[in-house]
């Protein structure tokens, strides 16, 4: 028996919106720890790791550890039946090949029961080593999204350079080039507007903008984004989900000439 209840149902809608353009199908891992997922995009360039801890749910019951294979696109279609202020309950029984979503309006005057077919998905978990990063940038997620969107209209790649001067996002395309530098700004009264740069070593890495732009679909989940960089390693772009967990995206860099 697996059952979880999330009063803030819009959170699940936003989580699925944040991964649906990157991942087609995925196994959701259910355990007493929570509801989690690790999945790569079809070209194995990016990986997304989602964690929603059991403590963050109003009700969470998971009698045994198991995985539910779901099409993310189909899940997004099912979640379209939920209003933003609905309470969402997800239920699955042992040995069945369906999952049930129940959407309740806050005043309990409308209840939707949606059943979705599960899938058999063959997927391996990847071991992500705990790493010390050369540089960690924390900045407003809306700012990061806007920078990625602006640079996307000029070029296909973004080079992220962290130095004493700050963090620079640069691109080059047929029509020209652009670079945007953000300096550390921790003096703001609003912590969500701060830009904080922790640098052990200067770092410069190039990434495909089409993936980074997809990651910014998670912007509504968190006011801040954390970008962790090390030379010749995948970047980690993390959006924390308050009191629940996180969505982390890993993207392999472009290498060599």
């Amino acid at each position: 028996m697996f059952e979880l209840r999330l009063v803030q149902g819009s959170l699940l809608k936003r989580v699925i919106d944040a991964i649906k353009d990157l991942v087609n199908d995925a196994n959701f891992d259910c355990s007493s720890t929570g509801f989690s997922l690790q999945a790569m995009d079809s070209s194995h360039v990016a990986l997304v790791a989602l964690l929603l801890r059991s403590e963050g749910f109003e009700h969470f019951r998971c009698d045994r550890t198991f995985s539910m294979g779901m099409s993310i696109a189909n899940m997004a279609k099912m979640l379209k039946c939920a209003s933003n202020d609905d309470i969402i309950t997800i239920k699955a029984d042992d040995g069945t090949d369906t999952v049930t979503f129940m959407f309740e309006s806050p005043s309990q005057d409308k209840i939707s029961d949606i059943e979705m077919k599960l899938m058999d998905i063959d997927s391996d978990h990847l071991g992500i080593p705990d790493a010390e990063y050369d540089a960690i940038v924390r900045m407003p997620s809306s700012e990061f999204s806007s920078i990625c969107s602006s640079l996307s209209s000029i070029g296909d790649t973004v080079t992220i350079t962290v130095s004493k001067q700050g963090v620079t996002f640069s691109t080059k395309g047929d029509i020209g080039s652009g670079n945007i530098t953000c300096r550390q700004n921790s003096s703001t009264e609003k912590p969500e507007e701060a830009t904080i740069i922790e640098m052990k070593e200067p770092v410069c890495l190039t990434f495909a903008l089409k993936y980074i732009t997809t990651f910014t679909k998670a912007t509504s989940l968190s006011s801040q984004v954390t970008i962790s960089l090390s030379s010749d390693m995948p970047v980690v772009v993390e959006y924390k989900i308050a009191e629940m967990g996180h969505v982390r995206y890993y993207l392999a860099p472009k290498i060599g000439e």
Binding site: G127, A252, E257
Partner: peptide, 14 residues
């Protein structure tokens, strides 16, 4: 042009 890396060359299957 630089080549796109693959995530599987950094993180191994468990």
């Amino acid at each position: 042009d630089p080549k796109q890396g693959n995530i599987l060359s950094f993180f191994k299957r468990k």
